[in-house]
Every structure is written in C-alpha cells, then in structure tokens.
C-alpha cells in the first residue's frame, strides 16, 4: 500500500464523515424546529426596506 492508496481511503473516510455530519444536523434541525417555521420563507422579502418596487 503506497501513499495514494492511503489518500483513497482518507477521501472515502472524510466524505463519509461530512455526509454523516450533514445528515445528523438535518435530522436534529427537523426534530427541534417546527415544519411551519422551517418552510416559512417567502420570496423577495427584504429585511432592509430600502428597496421598493413601487415608484414614488
């Protein structure tokens, strides 16, 4: 086994860890927050109100 083989295993391992981290976090968020809140965003909502489409 040379260095490149180790890189291959390391790449599999790191990928698995990252994917598991995201899955774990997503499950935790789904459990801790209501579905209504998580899907509450609306398009075009500007938190700063400096831009308006209506001409004044």
């Amino acid at each position: 086994m040379d260095l490149w083989n180790i890189f291959e295993y390391a790449a599999w391992g790191i990928s698995g860890l990252l994917l598991l981290w995201m899955l774990f976090d997503a499950v935790q968020v789904n459990r801790d927050f209501s579905e209504e809140l998580l899907t509450s965003s609306r398009e075009g909502e500007l938190e700063d109100t400096t831009e308006k489409h209506e001409l004044t």
């Binding site: 291959e8 295993y9 790449a11 599999w12 790191i14 990928s15 990252l18 994917l19």
Partner: peptide, 10 residues
C-alpha cells in the same frame, strides 16, 4: 471515485 465523492461532499 473517492476524490469525486470528496469534492461533492466537501
């Protein structure tokens, strides 16, 4: 393949 998956996952 492991590097393809690592790129996408990272």
């Amino acid at each position: 393949r492991p590097f393809v998956v690592l790129t996408i996952a990272a």
